[in-house]
């Protein structure tokens, strides 16, 4: 289980060497090598994350948190991961402006998702204040 870090580091080193080798002649394919490396590492990590998410969900059910809130949090985490991945790829390719637009889109979507929670908080505050 913990030994996978050696696997991932080795994978990253080999992919870095290949990307540097390809960068002189075919920069676009070097970008693909780095994208696929990132994909493989993220997929390796994602399957580990699944058990943590299940535990969190179980805990939320045990303490009777509304399922809307916990699923919103999961959605926000997923959107953050995906947006981070896309913006890193664009930044690798040298397209900094597209990367920052992807980050902006992620922030806006997260804000839209967070509005119901904010409204619930506001309702609670209004109901407490006489």
């Amino acid at each position: 289980m913990q030994m996978e870090i050696f696997q991932i580091v080795g994978l990253g080193l080999i992919a870095a060497v290949l990307a540097v080798l390809l960068k002189q002649h075919r920069p676009e394919i070097a970008l693909h090598v780095s994208v696929v490396t990132g994909l493989i590492i993220i997929m390796l990590i994602m399957f580990k994350l699944a058990s943590v998410l299940e535990a969190l969900q179980g805990m939320a059910q045990r303490i009777n948190v509304d399922t809307v809130y916990i699923s919103t949090i999961f959605k926000i985490v997923g959107i953050a991961y995906i947006a981070e991945f896309g913006s890193q790829v664009c930044r690798d390719a040298g397209e900094t402006s597209i990367a920052s637009k992807i980050e902006l889109a992620g922030k806006v979507i997260i804000m839209v998702l967070a509005v119901p929670i904010l409204m619930a908080l506001l309702d609670l505050i209004i109901s407490i204040v006489p």
């Binding site: 994208v35 696929v36 959107i79």
Partner: peptide
């Protein structure tokens, strides 16, 4: 070359998106 590599990469990206979508209930 670009098209062939892109075809391979797109499939993997779609796999990643599907995994994230099912995992985070998006």
């Amino acid at each position: 070359g670009i098209v062939i590599v892109l075809m391979m990469v797109i499939k993997m990206i779609s796999d990643l998106f599907n995994t994230v979508r099912t995992m985070f209930q998006l």
